[in-house]
Design a protein around this nucleic acid. Structure first.
Lengths: 137, 137
DNA sequence: TATTGACCTTCCCGTGACTGGAAGCCCTAT
DNA sequence: ATAGGGCTTCCAGTCACGGGAAGGTCAATA
């Protein structure tokens, strides 16, 4: 299979597949014409990568996960540790976004959104007495 | 005030303040020695920027918001539109992260995390029949 | 006066995970 | 021969900075 075929099959852009080769996540063979030639193993690895990335794992985590996947003597605790670390980062990001959302939603709600210039959103941003730490009430 | 003073006063790193000047968000004067000289207006703008950034507005949105802030004939609807666009992006990101979290949490829970190699996390990532679309049962 | 040491300047590179685009080779069909 | 599509490499850009080098400035001190 050429790169276009695996791109279609895996759902990953050809650019991304080349990038994965660049960073050493896959190592497809080359044909006499210089084209990458992908086999089922490559396709399998790309599918693995696609799913891991869709779960938000970083490239480095993907590298570790794939190494563990190929290691028959792995301990599942090693895998779980990576996953839990990632889960913790997701939770931290969720908290951050939820706080942003709450503050922003309050401001949006308070703003008339008409043709007058008065705007609680700008007022809050320009307010020198607060430090973006307010809960609506 | 030199850059170190406004960095302390605004809570923004000096590097960030220079960057904001680079992209045209602030324009402090210069002393004879080439040092940036910040006045109260600059400090006010930096505080505005710090709060807008902490709410997750992009640099370009900050630029628009500051322009609106300085425009006495603005319509609050313009401000609200920017804020709502940002809110929508936050909500989209929240949805994405929540889905990731749910899928990942299921996998983490299913994994024994001991010294045996069996691992539902790796099994799921390597599963060629699913496309990361499963809800725990 | 010379020297420290803190502060400031500009400039360039690196981040993560790609994406866009240019220049050019390969392959197939007509 | 030519047209087109697909493939190759390489370079640059994304976003919002951060790190660090090389060097100028300032206030205080020996």
């Amino acid at each position: 299979m050429n790169i276009g075929d695996v791109a279609t099959a895996s759902g990953l852009p050809a650019k991304t597949i080349r990038y994965y080769e660049d960073v050493g996540l896959i190592a497809p063979r080359r044909g006499a014409n210089g084209y990458r030639r992908f086999d089922q193993t490559d396709l399998h690895r790309l599918a693995f990568l696609g799913r891991a990335r869709s779960l938000g794992f970083s490239i480095e985590e993907c590298r570790e996960l794939m190494a563990l996947y190929g290691d028959k003597h792995r301990a599942s605790s090693d895998v779980k540790q990576i996953a839990r670390g990632h889960l913790a980062r997701i939770d931290a990001k969720l908290d951050e976004l939820r706080q942003m959302r709450a503050a922003l939603a309050d401001l949006v709600e308070a703003c008339a959104g008409d043709d007058r210039p008065d705007c609680p959103i700008l007022a809050d941003l320009a307010d020198t007495t607060t430090a973006t730490a307010r809960a609506g009430g």
